[in-house]
Design a protein around this nucleic acid. Structure first.
Lengths: 351, 351
DNA sequence: TTGTACGCGTTATCAC
DNA sequence: GTGATAACGCGTACAA
């Protein structure tokens, strides 16, 4: 157990440092800023100032600095968790990337969400009502109210969309092409009766779901194969999934929207007496790292470079902040990489 | 697709509002603050000011306010994600509770972590080097370096520990008593050969793991039953788990450290040809909401009120900030509630 | 090489 | 009721 501080140290200002080091406050500022400055100080004075700062535990007041410089050094990370939106969209890789990139460029990260409770009372988060942020990373699942969109757009800082397709000021994944690639991969491995499977969540979904399904259908048709799409709710319609897997028309391979669907499928397949991949091949179009450990056979899945995308989004946002002349940057699109597991082996020729 | 703003609106100040409304800036401040003030303004002036503020899209500069009031209105939420720590400790319920409670009391939330990369270069996050936070919620998994602990303790703001046992300024769960209760529950349902199971992660674990295991052992011994403890790595030692479950000495019931262990067990049990709960009862000492959907039979598990705990931690922290006289509050301990699924049915008497 | 003076936007305290 | 004015901590232009 750590000790808990029982009293708070006094706030130390540059003026106080100046008093202790017997110099003026302007010199303290010049020394502590570290930056090249018109003010050239002697080594002796520099040392006196630095030592006084160390010994007093000085920490610069970022509010005062913000007021002086016009930069808050604050980046907002918005997570859409409105009622009906998917909490799970907040991948830890996104958070880590946003934080690391912001830290590396000396910015704080302010967490912004829609409050779960009291939403009606206060539909616009404080971050949009007060001047506090220099820029915003918007990781949105489509749950924004019109008034909130308005508040964001009029808030006056540049916005970069993460995981949402826009022409400019956005970083996202090429969901269509990635899934096309995955579908091609499964077909090339010898499978013909392939189904697309996504859990029916009865909630607003990320647009990638439609894109991936469309890519699957188009690719199948390009190969003159019949695309099948299945969609059930795991808890409520579990037996239907199992019956589907037990039926004579069951697919040879299933292409899942994301890993959790593959996990659902694994569970149902086991109960249906099917082994993966011997009796049923399974692939997924979007890796969810948290679930990796629960697949009996390593899953063949598409890995989106979420950490890198988040880093890119932050850089884009901060470039917009620092180059005040430009308000727009072209979008950056990332491709997923195929992580080959053992769930889609080459199909033995059976004819 | 939303429109992207192509130009930034100018920053509007109270002085500008005053000019437009043809009043003095002091009146603007009094009107916009909303608080009772010695300045009594007429309804007409009030309306002029409010309208000017609305039309100009005025947003108060929180840095200026912070400098004047000495309050940043900023709460730090620290997540220990150091190399070796468990990313998964960051339950979404914690985040939601912290954000909602802070928002309700008009505070921003600053996300703080240890940078994944460049850690050696910059071991102390900016949040502890600059004066920017009024207080800190520390959700720690034990990965803090000594120098970082020092930086936090000397940073000058009150700290509240979330999910970590301390005498004061902490909110945590009664891991020992909760697991004792769960063990009693399983015993009362007629099971005798009960094993404690936790995945071997080869990483620093939260202290609750030891507490829960100790509680299990003590409770078993109090009932003159032999406690068995098993610990394997899912990926690397999967066959050992399966062999254990297939053996004649296999337990009648397994008490898992947390839900993910129960999921591991479900997977292995299925492969071993055992049905849950007919052949093997399973309980868990810590619910992980994200995994709920993957249990074939609803899991009997302990649900920690994480959202409420996070809210309580924020309130404790903000009380410390606002009542500057008191630097210490007694810890708050939460109990888990038993969520009865169907994985631990009453055991038919067999003798 | 160092000190002085000013202003950022806000709150709060005064006389008017 | 209202309109000046000081002060918060820091950065910087300019004077010494």
């Amino acid at each position: 157990m750590m000790e808990t501080a029982t009293q708070r140290p006094p706030r130390i200002t540059q003026t106080e440092i100046a008093r202790r080091a017997n110099v003026s406050q302007g010199v303290v500022s010049a020394v502590l800023s570290g930056k090249p400055s018109p003010i050239r100080v002697s080594a002796a004075v520099r040392d006196r100032v630095l030592r006084a700062a160390m010994e007093s535990g000085y920490r610069p007041n970022s509010s005062a600095r913000a007021m002086r410089t016009g930069l808050y050094h604050n980046l907002g990370y918005f997570l859409d968790t409105a009622p009906g939106a998917m909490e799970e969209n907040d991948f830890p890789e996104f958070r880590a990337g946003v934080f690391d990139a912001a830290s590396a460029r000396d910015f704080f990260v302010s967490l912004i969400r829609l409050p779960n409770r009291d939403f009606a009372k206060n539909p616009i988060p404080k971050a949009f009502r007060e001047a506090h942020l220099d820029t915003l990373i918007l990781n949105n699942m489509g749950g924004l109210t019109p008034e909130l969109q308005q508040a964001i757009l009029t808030s006056g800082f540049p916005i970069v969309y993460l995981n949402e397709k826009h022409d400019t000021n956005a970083v996202y994944f090429d969901d269509y092409e990635d899934t096309r690639m995955l579908t091609e991969y499964v077909i090339q491995r010898g499978y013909k009766r392939i189904a697309f499977f996504a859990e029916n969540t009865r909630r607003p979904q990320h647009y990638s779901e439609q894109l991936r399904q469309a890519a699957f259908i188009a690719t199948m048709q390009a190969h003159r194969l019949a695309p099948e799409v299945q969609r059930w709710h795991f808890r409520e319609e579990r037996t239907q999934i199992i019956n589907w897997l037990r039926s004579a028309q069951r697919p040879q391979a299933v292409l899942c929207y994301r890993d959790r669907d593959a996990l659902t499928l694994q569970s149902c397949a086991t109960e249906a007496g099917l082994r993966i991949p011997q009796d049923l091949a399974v692939a997924s179009a979007s890796n969810e790292q948290r679930l990796d450990d629960y697949f009996v056979v390593p899953l063949t899945t598409l890995v989106q470079p979420r950490y890198d995308a988040a880093v890119a989004a932050v850089h884009m946002a901060l470039d917009l902040v620092l180059d005040r002349k430009i308000a727009t940057r072209p979008a950056k699109v990332y491709r997923a990489t195929l992580r080959e597991g053992e769930s889609v082996p080459v199909r033995p020729v059976s004819r």
